[in-house]
């Protein structure tokens, strides 16, 4: 045992890069909502980039260490404190046996990633340590942390000596306000009247309170207008209904044509609502950092733009690797 959970925070869970390969059975990929932040946190403490960390949202946990460790907190601006003394985010620092790691109030973003040297060691479930709470799978007993839990860490793989290791400001990524989410229109886009589709992208939306690892809901824009049709057999009577299909990660469904929902890492894998397009893979990380009531603009882009954004993200990670290793 090396970490005792004194306080759980709002919703803190063990996450890594997820468990691909089971979506056809309704088991989503899970893993860090902000994968970039998870990778950088692991790099800072000398772990392999896919090691399991703690993902915490809005309100951090309180953790007592029973062994010495190196820790880094990335993602949201959620200032860490060791025995009450503040430490930097996006910077490796040491925590001695007997010391307590806690957090100050959230300043920016939504989800912080707490990497501990050696990685959080819970049993692998279908190849991953990520927690999928809806299916009670992975992580610590398939659920979020509770006070009284005990966490083990693995044996550190990298060089840990270099505390105070940090990344330059330009690599501390968080969304701007209003946040821009780039979308490739498609899937059932043709169900929308042209003007309604244009209005969806022109209007400013706000993150609703129903925003979690399954999906983020948005409100504040106009209801959608559908192309009239006789509903196909099996689709259901509402114009926003389709014959239940798969849902891509990042797909934007609009039940009843009113409030868009972007599915995230713990996505429901399918259902009967039409989708108007999909957030590009690069911008998925940003969604995990959005707070309720934040303004968001959806922006239509083509495949070329999406792939170029993906290349830029890879180049950025490569640069961080060079700086940190």
């Amino acid at each position: 045992m090396s970490i005792r959970v004194l306080g759980s925070g709002l919703a803190t869970s063990v996450q890594d890069l997820g468990r691909p390969g089971y979506y056809h059975l309704g088991i989503p990929i899970s893993g860090a909502m902000d994968r970039y932040a998870l990778r950088v946190a692991n790099m800072l403490v000398g772990n392999s980039e896919d090691a399991a960390v703690l993902e915490t949202v809005f309100l951090g946990p309180e953790l007592e260490f029973t062994e010495d460790a190196v820790v880094a907190v990335t993602g949201a601006q959620l200032p860490p404190k060791v025995d009450g003394v503040q430490r930097e985010t996006w910077t490796a620092f040491s925590v001695k046996s007997g010391q307590t790691l806690s957090f100050d109030f959230l300043q920016h973003g939504a989800r912080a990633y707490i990497a501990v040297s050696g990685g959080i060691d819970v049993p692998l479930a279908l190849g991953s340590r990520s927690t999928y709470t809806l299916g009670a799978l992975g992580g610590l007993a398939g659920r979020n942390l509770q006070s009284g839990d005990e966490l083990h860490t693995g044996i550190s793989q990298g060089k840990v000596g270099n505390t105070r290791r940090s990344v330059p400001d330009k690599f501390k990524r968080l969304p701007d306000s209003p946040a821009c989410l780039r979308v490739i229109p498609g899937l059932y886009w043709h169900r929308l009247q042209e003007q309604s589709g244009q209005r969806f992208f022109a209007e400013t939306w706000k993150v609703a309170t129903e925003a979690d690892r399954i999906g983020y809901r948005f409100r504040g824009g106009s209801p959608l207008d559908f192309v009239e049709r006789e509903q196909p057999f099996g689709a259901g009577s509402d114009p926003s209904n389709i014959v239940d299909s798969c849902y891509p990660y990042g797909s934007i469904q609009v039940p009843g044509g009113t409030e868009p929902i972007v599915l995230h890492r713990d996505a429901v894998s399918g259902g009967g609502y039409f989708m108007l397009g999909t957030v590009i893979s690069t911008d998925m990380d940003y969604i995990g950092q959005l707070q309720p009531n934040m303004e968001v603009q959806f922006m239509p882009v083509d495949m070329e733009t999406a792939l170029s954004a993906r290349r830029d993200r890879k180049a950025m990670l490569d640069e961080v690797r060079r700086l940190v290793s």
Binding site: I184, G186, L187, W189, S245, C246, P248, Y249, G250, S251, M275, T278, V279, I280, S281, T282, M303, A306, L307, R310
Partner: peptide
């Protein structure tokens, strides 16, 4: 249809 840059639907 493409679902973002990493799905085909």
């Amino acid at each position: 249809s493409f679902g973002g840059d990493d799905h085909i639907f």
